[in-house]
């Protein structure tokens, strides 16, 4: 079984659109959305949810009213102003447990907090594992781990030889969780100042995992100077540029229709996307 993770550093470079195209070109694979903070792969792949699971992240404080003596000690010591009039505001609570330790009546307990859900779904192009973190919940790295572990199990069950994962933007903990143990990281970038700025950092992160790392420049013809700059930078970083996708209004149109661009079947991006996919398959096959 091989795993491909698509990442970008900066958000909005077209990562999810390219993954949507790959899903159709692969025919049958396990699709995995690791962007649990703001998942959006479902917009293109239209999954039907088969199984829903709860995700418990960090612990938060809870007051047992029958034991509480209203002494006010917890309220006085809470640095996050999460306790007011004997009530805990779970959005403000950071789970530091100071209240739990100082309560003389042992009226506070730390309870695992429901921070999100994850799902196993069906799509036209294979099963999909995805998640939704609750409002203002932390710990997305842990949820990404959970999602990827399940993705491997489901892929095994269905005898699928490929997992394609959509990574979250940025270079933080959830990105690391989506790269660990993957066979290949495809970095989707664009020829803008911030695209250039983020490329070096994300390539360094990916190369720390010993996976194949390659770059794809999306909307490359928007700024040909910046595009060349990215190609030079990639060479310096010793990562190949395996695809250059032109700006194509069909990409935006496909998003509006909620389908992968390859299903729309028109526009200047079709052929380069097909070639990019061949390159990806070639690199993964050689590993």
């Amino acid at each position: 079984m091989k795993e491909l993770t698509i990442i970008s550093g900066k958000g909005g470079t077209g990562k999810t659109s390219i993954l949507g195209a790959f899903a159709t070109l692969a025919g049958s694979s396990l699709l995995c959305d690791c962007d649990v903070d703001a998942a959006n792969l479902h917009i293109l792949l239209n999954p039907s949810i088969k199984e829903t699971y709860e995700f418990y992240g960090e612990k938060k404080a809870e007051i047992l009213p029958e034991l509480c003596t209203d002494c006010g000690k917890c309220e006085e010591l809470c640095q996050f102003k999460a306790i007011q009039k004997g009530q805990i505001n779970s959005y403000a609570c950071e789970g530091c447990a100071v209240c739990y330790h100082v309560c003389p009546a042992e009226a506070i307990k730390m309870k695992p907090h429901l921070s999100g859900h994850w799902y196993i779904s069906d799509t036209k192009w294979g099963p999909m594992v995805h998640a939704k973190l609750g409002i203002a919940q932390g710990n997305s790295g842990l949820l990404v781990n959970r999602v990827r572990k399940k993705a491997r199990e489901v892929a095994k069950e269905h005898n699928l030889s490929l997992i394609i994962s959509d990574g979250p933007p940025g270079i933080g903990c959830p990105v690391i969780s989506s790269l660990a143990g993957t066979d290949m990281a495809l970095v989707v970038t664009e020829p803008t100042a911030s695209g250039i700025h983020d490329l070096e950092r994300i390539v360094k992160v990916a190369s720390g995992f010993g996976c194949i790392t390659a770059v794809c420049i999306n909307k490359y013809n928007l700024d040909e100077d910046n595009c060349r700059f990215i190609e030079d930078l990639a060479e310096k970083l010793e990562v190949p540029v395996i695809g250059k996708i032109p700006y194509d209004a069909a990409m935006a149109e496909a998003v509006l229709k909620g389908i992968p661009v390859t299903i729309l079947g028109q526009g200047a991006a079709q052929e380069p996307l097909g070639e990019l996919w061949q390159q990806v398959k070639h690199l993964l096959g050689a590993r």
Partner: peptide
């Protein structure tokens, strides 16, 4: 260290 905090 060979990576930043959070592995970045």
């Amino acid at each position: 260290p060979n990576v930043g905090p959070h592995g970045s």
